[in-house]
Amino acid sequence: MGQFIEWGALANIIVIGVLVGAGLPALFAVGVRLLAGPGSTVDGQVPLRRRVLAGLCFALVLAAIVGAIVYIAAGGH
């Protein structure tokens, strides 16, 4: 099978794919939980600390998307 599967590339795709493809949604989910999870509101308001942390999560996800667009535009594919 050696000549038919590029194992090196495949291993990279799987490892980085899991890190990015599962990591980013998980990060987004952490952001959602910070904003709307149990105990997120005090007197009907989300405390500043939680909002900043959630913002950080969403910002990282957004940065990854922008990075991907730049990567596509640069013809890296």
Binding site: V18, A22, P25, A26, A29, V32, R33
Partner: peptide, 28 residues
């Protein structure tokens, strides 16, 4: 490969947000 990554992603996401109200989850 995609089934593997999709499974891990979904499993993480649904675990992290399991006690978030459904409407908040959907909205965000």
């Amino acid at each position: 490969v995609a089934i593997l990554v999709g499974t891990i992603a979904t499993s993480l996401v649904t675990r992290i947000t399991r006690d978030v109200p459904q409407d908040s989850n959907d909205r965000m």
